[in-house]
Amino acid sequence: MWKSIVVLSIGLVSGAAAHLGYFNAYAPACFSADAECEMEWLRAELDLSEEQYVSITRLHGNSAAQIRSLSRKVRDLELLLAELEAERVTEGYVDYLEIRNYMEVKRKLDEACMKSTSDLIASVGDVMNMDQRKRYFSIVQSRIN
């Protein structure tokens, strides 16, 4: 009886140890959504060479300030729209001139955002070979105009 219990225990402990060992060795290293993690993921996903990786990281770094600034403008515009809507609801007043200006600014901002994204995607794609580019475009497909 004891011999069977010992064999069962050894089996279960060995199985658990093998499971944890393998999982810890091969589980994805980073889950957080930070830039370094994303670049590492992109490198692995597209089989980028060291040279390509450096170029692509530099391209993202160069456009970071512009994208951040555009992103801030988009949020400001959303806040402006929320304020206009609050004014309409609480005071029953619609400032059509302000709305027209909002629409105009939003249209220009959307164009600038799309151009910025497309330019970045195109310049990153230029660093890649055909196969990598195809895979990269499939990842960012919804962002390509």
């Binding site: 456009s63 951040r68 555009l70 955002c113 960012v140 962002r143």
Partner: peptide, 18 residues
Amino acid sequence: LAESYKQVIDPLIKDTYL
């Protein structure tokens, strides 16, 4: 990571961060 990468490159996505 694919989703968060799209947020990095597109300012129109609500949660864009850089």
